[in-house]
Design a protein around this nucleic acid. Sequence first.
DNA 1: TCGTTGACTGTTCATTCGACCAGCGAAGCA
DNA 2: TGCTTCGCTGGTCGAATGAACAGTCAACGA
Lengths: 200, 200
Amino acid sequence: MSRAEQRDATRQRIVDAAITAFADQGFAASSTRDIAARAGVTQGLVTYHFDSKDTLWRAAATQIFGLLVGTLPDRPRRASNAERRAAAREQIRAYVRFAAEHPEVFHFMVDAGRHDDDRMRWLVQTCLAPRFSEITADGGIGSVAADRAAAPHAYYALLGAGSLIFAVAPECRELTGVDPTRRAAIERHADLMAQLFVPD
Amino acid sequence: MSRAEQRDATRQRIVDAAITAFADQGFAASSTRDIAARAGVTQGLVTYHFDSKDTLWRAAATQIFGLLVGTLPDRPRRASNAERRAAAREQIRAYVRFAAEHPEVFHFMVDAGRHDDDRMRWLVQTCLAPRFSEITADGGIGSVAADRAAAPHAYYALLGAGSLIFAVAPECRELTGVDPTRRAAIERHADLMAQLFVPD
DNA sequence: TCGTTGACTGTTCATTCGACCAGCGAAGCA
DNA sequence: TGCTTCGCTGGTCGAATGAACAGTCAACGA
């Protein structure tokens, strides 16, 4: 393996470990030593590749939010009302499956979104704003929001309803006996979400 | 003030500060020194009244989840279908208002619920299990869950959809321009939630 | 082939963490 | 009034933190 390939592979291992750690314990409670151990490297190497813990967090956020792009199916450009409703349902199902496979996204959002600081503003401008305008456009969940002013409420209702059960999977298992990581449970949640947000 | 009163008042100030701190930064990232500073006492006093950080967290969780009790209106015992639907709507509205006023509950749940450890199990058995069986009973959001097996999914959809926007209020302001702490926004979210979970 | 670059290691630094403890002084009791 | 209790302070402990550093050695370019 060339030096450049080795460098990229190592950086990738660190970012992957960082995503898991930050999602698991939040930014402040994650240590660069723990991340290094998960990636199988030394702690000094983490600050070598990513100057600071903050820079590493941005790299991790960029990667995990980037996964969302391309996962959601395109909404039809010109279609009948019925077709648009069917497409909206399929978008919602796709999002639920994504949230089940990557609960990290939800944890990054909640961890950063509750503080009015630089990391929150960076996340909004870099990762969230481009998605938000598309999700709330007509044909997405625009069918849920009765008027334009309700779009932010529909957006957070959709994200929260679709993600929480997977974000607190251990609690869900203990409280309800349902393991939300099982495929049957994921599909059941997708069914409920589609029916909730795009009723017959 | 008597010695007992002074003791209780001090303990209460510490618990209040702990709720804010734990909700703000999670358990691991909160320090007993920061909590002590918020409460206006010394750090040593925190471990004096509450033997450990873990004990303090349990006291804080007991208080904040206890607030939820008595906040939700009772569901009618014997009522017509229309009355039960109206009651379910009012329960949902009440929960949204509570989530807006106390986003700490959501943060406690997400912070503890993602790890399979003692704190999660304690939270489930002490604070969540009693509520869960009542919320998912007929007349609550039972109208949402088509069958018994869908109840856990409806439960987490309701909590997530009703809480997230308030839990990430700074992000919501930055992303959408909507301030979810304003009364008008709270009522708008309550409207959407009632319509979503108990449609016409 | 030889000098240079750069990925990586191991150590060190000041700071902060939860927990512990000796001592103080006013409230409460006899 | 004198003694005891106990809420509370201030300091200290080892452990863990993010960052910085000099040193090492193989990959690379001239």
